[in-house]
């Protein structure tokens, strides 16, 4: 029998319960392990490894580094996609961890073997829906096989591809040109020659705050140039803050969670960026102080997962 936490996962992330056999979200803080990503880890794969490490960053230099940095943040934002994928909390990075592949990825009805996805399943959207159960292996975007699928060097081709992915495959709203440009800039940097591609790297709180910082820099830039682009970026920053929130669920981390919520509100309410930066800097100190007790620490995560069972 499949892991019960996988059942009806489209909505569960939002609905935490008191007592449940279908518990896909867990009991309230401080003991909870309510990490959305956990829902996509296939049976037989170590969830601790999946949540505390990731394929190595393989990024070459970019012609537009600020755009590429913001693109990485957007790549992790579920709100960029539309429809059911977005509602389930899936982002580009859910399948392409750190721009790479995800061999542990499993989405009931969509995946076949772990690490595959049926991208023409009508659950995500009607435009590319077919009647065939045909999951395909998720490509590593840094490896040659992943790189050659779209002509990245031809101006506009990757952009058109990404736009179609969002609007047709996932039923999302048309992104702003700057959003697509940022995503494309990020994907163009993904290159196996820039790293030892078979290695992994540790995930830390800095992984998120680095992306948040990059998002704030982009927000300050005039190149953002549109309300829609600005909104997508703000939502990407907020969901990144939410991922940090998931990793600091302990009672003694209440102040961190409060600050994360406050920063999210500041981003939403378009408070002066200088004030947001100040809050973020204060947050970083707190995150560091509690890092060992956070769920970025594999020992803590394993203990919490065992406790949650």
């Amino acid at each position: 029998m499949a892991d019960p936490r996988r059942r009806l996962k489209l909505e569960f992330a939002a609905v935490c319960v008191a007592v449940t056999v279908l518990a896909t979200c867990q009991s309230p803080p401080p003991q909870a392990v309510s990490i959305n990503e956990l829902n996509w880890v296939a049976d037989g794969y170590d969830p601790v490894a999946a949540l505390t490490a990731q394929p190595a960053t393989c990024q070459a230099a970019s012609d537009a580094p600020a755009n590429a940095a913001a693109g990485k943040l957007l790549f992790h934002s579920p709100l960029l996609l539309g429809g059911q994928a977005s509602k389930a909390g899936l982002s580009c990075a859910s399948c392409h961890r750190n721009g790479r592949a995800n061999q542990a990825f499993m989405f009931e009805s969509i995946s076949g073997q772990p690490g595959t996805a049926d991208v023409t399943h009508g659950l995500f959207g009607p435009q590319r829906a077919d009647e065939i159960n045909n999951p395909v292996a998720i490509p590593d975007l840094a490896l040659p096989d992943g790189q050659i699928r779209v002509a990245r060097d031809v101006p506009g081709v990757l952009e058109a591809f990404l736009q179609a992915q969002i609007t047709e495959e996932f039923g999302g709203a048309l992104p702003a040109p700057v959003t697509i440009a940022s995503l494309a800039a990020y994907i163009r940097t993904l290159d196996h020659s820039a790293c030892a591609p078979d290695t992994i790297e540790t995930r830390t709180w800095q992984t998120e705050t680095g992306m948040i910082q990059d998002g704030l820099v982009q927000l300050a830039s005039e190149s953002i140039g549109s309300t829609r682009g600005d909104r997508a970026l703000r939502l990407a920053i907020r969901t990144s803050l939410g991922r940090l929130h998931e990793r600091y669920p302990q009672a003694e981390q209440t102040a961190i969670r409060s600050r994360l919520t406050r920063i999210s509100q500041m981003v939403r309410d378009e408070v002066q960026l200088l004030d947001i930066h100040a809050e973020l800097n204060a947050l970083k100190l707190e995150l560091e102080q509690q890092a060992d007790q956070s769920l970025y620490n594999p020992v803590e995560l394993r203990r919490a997962l065992l406790q949650a069972r």
Binding site: R7, L8, F12, V15, C16, V17, A18, V19, T20, V21, L22, A23, T24, C25, P28
Partner: peptide
């Protein structure tokens, strides 16, 4: 299946 925190104890 997913009663809220204000839901029942079952």
């Amino acid at each position: 299946s997913l009663p809220s925190s204000s839901g029942p104890s079952y």
